[in-house]
């Protein structure tokens, strides 16, 4: 009985992720897309907890739900669009896109589903210590470079959006 909790949770999370992800692409209203995206992020955080990576799950919620979704909602509110028929939602290249995506998707899905691993038992203990030691000891230099990237992105975004003061 207790053995079934983990697969059941996995099934619920999978259905939520796939449904919400498809909703992001197919939803008629853009705010619905944004909220479904936040919902997908939350469910992926649930997957991380299921995998025993609770630190990464917390960062996932903190960064994606708390910051990126709000940023995207800002973007949605600053670019109001008049409503349009559903037929105009997709680009003109949609058939070419489908032709390109579907075969690759089928191949990758087949590979993923046929994946058999030897290590089915997850790691014991949290991922706080491994994550901290790897970020601040083994990957300290890339971490610093990443912070420079963030600074550059911040400055770039401000310069792009700032209006010229009259």
């Amino acid at each position: 009985m207790l053995d079934l909790i983990e697969p059941a949770l996995f099934a619920v999370l999978t259905i939520a992720i796939v449904a919400a992800g498809a909703g992001v692409v197919l939803a008629n209203r853009i705010t619905t897309s944004a909220l479904l995206m936040a919902f997908t992020f939350l469910n992926i955080a649930g997957m991380f907890v299921l995998l025993g990576a609770e630190t990464v799950a917390m960062f996932q919620v903190l960064i994606y739900v708390g910051a990126i979704t709000v940023l995207i909602l800002y973007g949605v509110m600053f670019t109001p669009q008049s409503p349009r028929p559903y037929g105009l939602f997709f680009q003109t290249q949609k058939y070419w896109a489908a032709l390109l995506v579907v075969p690759i998707a089928i191949i990758v899905a087949l590979i993923a589903f046929s994946f058999r691993d030897s290590a089915t038992v997850g790691a014991k203990g949290g991922d706080l210590l491994p994550l901290a030691t790897s970020v601040f000891r083994d990957f300290a230099f890339p971490f610093e470079v990443a912070s420079v990237l963030l600074l550059a992105a911040m400055v770039g975004a401000i310069v792009l959006v700032k209006r010229d003061e009259d």
Partner: peptide, 13 residues
């Protein structure tokens, strides 16, 4: 073991 992080995360939601 990530209790404090959990609280800040929920606060940001």
């Amino acid at each position: 073991n990530v209790g404090l992080l959990y609280m800040t995360t929920l606060g940001s939601m």
